[in-house]
Amino acid sequence: MAQDVVKADTAKTDVVITAEGVAMRFGTNTVFQDVTFEVRRGEVFVILGGSGCGKSTLLKLLIGLMPPSAGTMTVLGEEMAKLEGAARRDLLRRIGVMWQSGALLGSLTLAENVMLPIEAHTKLPEAARRMIAMAKLGLVGLSDAADRLPAEISGGMLKRAGIARAMALDPEILFLDEPSAGLDPITSAGLDELILSLARETGTTFVVVTHELQSILAIGDRCIMLDKEARGLIAEGNPKHLRDQSEHPTVRAFFRREARAGV
């Protein structure tokens, strides 16, 4: 018993994200409520669920694009929704986001896109920014495409460039929105490997929103599952355990790719 208490305490210091009783409503439409979870430092945490269950909304809450309707959510110990000005900038510097379609600026080359957050947050000279950008693009395998425009490269490359830009400032937490969406299985597996190696080597915490089964099983240390009908969490734990042991009908259907009435 005493041991358990100590364990819980050390675990607490390593928690980077907490959500407590978080709810999100648009008018009278409740997307989800009573969502409670925590993310520990260094893990790959997967948010999964079917279409329309509020995965992307939850991600928007996490990165502070909008405040939750109820409950509290902290990222790196701060409540993002309540931060303003310099404090908010400081916190944003410590996280990185890869958007679903890359969201690279179309008028800038890949290297310039990666240099953008560095320019916004540091006083490094141009040569230094460019060197960092080249190193990050190299890590995602895009050294040769550094001077090309986003419109000239493929979807998989766009996502990798998005990851390079998200990593530009060595963030403590990297949020990835649907990294596998629209990619072929080989490219998608390559992206999973990249995520895993980055997580293992840099100790960065990854929060990945996805519904790609292969990906979830390959990279997820822990996951939570949102459900549209339950309007909240229906499962939490290691993806492989959930696949093998969960009794929840939706969770079972999800992992076994079974169709269910009304979905």
């Binding site: 080249m134 190193a135 190299g138 890590l139 050294s143 080597e201 840099t202």
Partner: peptide, 18 residues
């Protein structure tokens, strides 16, 4: 050392500027 190693591997071989 790890950060440095990764940075170098990302940069790869120095290539001539275009």
């Amino acid at each position: 050392a790890g950060v440095l190693r990764r940075f170098r591997s990302g940069l790869g071989e120095p290539r001539p500027a275009k």
